[in-house]
Amino acid sequence: MHKEIRLTGSGGQGVILMGIILAEAAVEKGLQAIQSQSYGPEARGGASKCEVILSDQPIDFPKVLEPNILVALTQDGANKYAHGLGEDCLAIFDESVEVPENLGTKNVFSYPIIETARITLGKSIVSNIVTLGVFCELTDIYTREELLSAILQRVPKGSEVLNERAFDEGIKLVRRA
């Protein structure tokens, strides 16, 4: 097993935390993992990129070369990082993002992730956790419990109920579609 994952969005959306949670859940399962990020000077806004590699073997090269899974929550992020993908790559977009023409894969899913966070859950800050629900349901890397447990260890105390709901709303988005 060797999965290369690229997550993009805008600074402040919690894209990096999303990557950390995916890596921590993998380590918890006994897998190897490496998480890295690239970022500009902005603390908020700007296109941020987070990469995670998961493997059952030691990981040498620390960066994603050919993503198996790509997530883009913003148009900026998609324009900058979602192109030239392998044809088997799973690409997950927020519904607001126009899928780039030169994407390279037809394995594309779009869901109203940010809208679900904002309207259904009333907190756009949990967009990243909704995304993890989508991720969990579309891939077969983690069980719901494995990923949820990693989420609950990372989110602020007192926000566990909201985040579990957000995670499950993400799962529902996939199941409903």
Partner: peptide, 9 residues
């Protein structure tokens, strides 16, 4: 930066 900011087990 590569190693300083990377997260690994």
């Amino acid at each position: 930066e590569t190693i300083g900011h990377a997260r690994e087990p």
